[in-house]
Nucleic acid binder design. Structure first.
Lengths: 152, 152
DNA sequence: CGCGACCGGTAGCATAGGCTACATTCCAGT
DNA sequence: ACTGGAATGTAGCCTATGCTACCGGTCGCG
């Protein structure tokens, strides 16, 4: 049970217009969403490294993601728990089918967003940077619209 | 000193193409960025509530942000430390000039992104949802491009 | 075929956001 | 005035991401 937002009223001092705040609750999901974004970043990066180097290693991931290898190890442990990656001590990191699917979706979204931003006239550097931030927040509907726009 | 990403090579088993990973390091900023996003959400929401109700209260913020009042109280303490808000126990929350500036910027970006998505043909509901996620990741350059697009 | 260097793992700490349960304050309406 | 219940605040716990230091493993090369 998500717990209904409560009635809100009972104005103490001012509050001229109580007005129910049903426009709320779009923010939640916040924390879980953040963890999911990180999962996508890892999946995408692992797939890239495998393509580029033949295998993904902790150190390479750390370099690509801009964090310490310690953070990578710990986060990989979480992703392994979630069934996205396979980790064997001192060996390469691989993706499970589920992880590969996530990586594929992430890569596709990333490319679409990037092309879209460039098509909008954004400089390559800024487009790259913004795509990184934006890609995780694009719904299926918006993604389709972006694809249409790029083609057109 | 950000610490140079190390040489990366010294391939153990496979690694056909070592290839330096200078394309990395765009991911960092991650954690700090997340905290900054939340600050913007709070600033924007506080400004909205003051406009709408005449004052911003903890409970109203909690409802709007979809979190418990406890989380709001603690986050407000951080924002107060950072000089964005003024909190007096059991009283309304107000914005400092710095907080008002942040709220203004956030609101503007939010509106631009929202109009932009709608102009792209996204349904209002999806546009609202995506704007929430996207707005924090739009650079000044991309924002300008979106404004141009909306006007055109 | 041993060993040093680099890679990967562990310990331990910090910050941040979330929560429930419980304590406190405040004010509207008797 | 009092007081009950809503609004706030506090205590204490959890997870997740970061980090630095330090320890243990592997393997390429001499």
């Amino acid at each position: 049970m998500p717990k209904p937002p409560r009635s809100t009223s009972r104005a103490r001092k001012p509050v001229p217009a109580p007005a129910p705040q049903e426009q709320a609750a779009r923010h939640n999901t916040t924390r879980a969403a953040h963890a999911a974004e990180i999962a996508e970043d890892y999946a995408e990066t692992i797939a890239d490294l495998i393509l580029r180097d033949g295998s993904a290693r902790v150190t390479g991931l750390a370099a690509c993601l801009g964090v310490s290898h310690v953070t990578v190890v710990r986060t990989l442990a979480r992703l392994a728990r979630e069934g996205l990656v396979v980790v064997r001590p001192y060996r390469e990191v691989t993706l499970t089918p589920k992880g590969r699917a996530m990586a594929g979706r992430a890569k596709h979204r990333h490319e679409v967003v990037l092309k879209f931003l460039k098509a909008l006239g954004i400089s390559p550097a800024a487009a790259e940077a913004d795509a990184e931030g934006i890609e995780h927040h694009v719904s299926a509907e918006t993604l389709r619209a972006m694809e249409r726009f790029v083609v057109a």
